Computed example of a mutant assay.
Amino acid sequence: MNQIEVLNLVPKFLNFYDKANQPDINADERFKLWKEHYNFAAIPPGEEGQKMAREMLDHAFTQYAKHVPVLKEWNPDTSKLERTLIDIKDIMGYHQPVNLTVIYFVGGFENNPFVAPYGEGKAVCLPIECGESDIFLAHELTHIIHGETAGIKPSWERTIGSTLLQEGLATRISEYYVPGEPEEKYIANQDGWLEACKERHADILEGIIPFLDDQSAETVSRFIFGTGTAGLPREVYYAGWETVGKLLEEGVTFEKMAYIPEEDIPEYIRKAMVKETLR
């Protein structure tokens, strides 16, 4: 039987907000309060992550006021969590019990849920300041189940090939599970991003192939948060969306892709991408 622990960080955020939303608090003091009383965001580890957290907070803080009344009344829907977890397991052909932590938090309106190491396992971290999203939930639960099927360790440092397949499966399974939305809903977090990627389609795919075995934190951060070889952000997401989409068209199932062992993923993805770029 699945076991789901829910951790609601919204009250913790509201405590920070009450302390920081004072006329005599400047930006430096506000960030200090954020680190002391909240300190949770979709950021990479280290100094770069702290810099991103500061920028996010400075950009988002004035937007919080109109959302605070809703945040004060918000409560997690555990029945939806349980139902979606069962459905995603079925789609991926995984039938073992799952122990899972789901963390609800208030982010910076960047719409960036994520999976992170938590205790001896992993946690799905879901932002709620823009409202809950069934697509986000399906996406992140796919990551959790994929970790089980492929033996993927809960680590920031992972090969680009593994990252590409993880994000490709998550975006395409969320599309399958919550059908009928525009493509951007499943993959984009910025207006115009997907169209820009399509215009550089070949450049993105060809540019990422040499990095598929690279697992350095710098390279992972580059293709997730920074700009890739084609000069666009989040190029690994686009490459994953397109590559898994082509594999599905060829008849490869979600379950087959999900069970590729982590150590074999870069070579599997390389063959699939080379085949695509040669068309």
Rank of each mutant, 00 (worst) to 15 (best):
L7P: 00
K12E: 11
N15F: 11
Y17G: 01
D18G: 05
K19D: 07
A20R: 00
N21L: 09
G49V: 01
M52Y: 10
M56E: 08
A60D: 03
T62P: 01
K66H: 10
P69N: 10
D77V: 07
D77C: 05
L81Y: 15
R83K: 14
I86H: 13
I86D: 14
I91V: 14
I91T: 12
L100I: 04
G107W: 09
G108S: 14
P117S: 08
G119W: 12
G119R: 12
E120T: 10
K122T: 12
C125W: 04
A138N: 10
E140Q: 15
L141T: 02
T142H: 09
H143V: 01
G147S: 10
R158D: 11
T163S: 09
L164W: 09
G168H: 08
Y176G: 02
Y177N: 06
V178D: 07
E181W: 09
P182F: 04
P182N: 10
D191H: 12
R200M: 14
G207A: 07
I208S: 07
F211N: 09
F211T: 04
L212I: 08
A217D: 06
R222Y: 00
P233E: 09
V236E: 11
A239F: 08
E249A: 14
A258N: 06
A258L: 11
R270S: 06
R270C: 02
K271N: 13
K275R: 14
T277I: 15
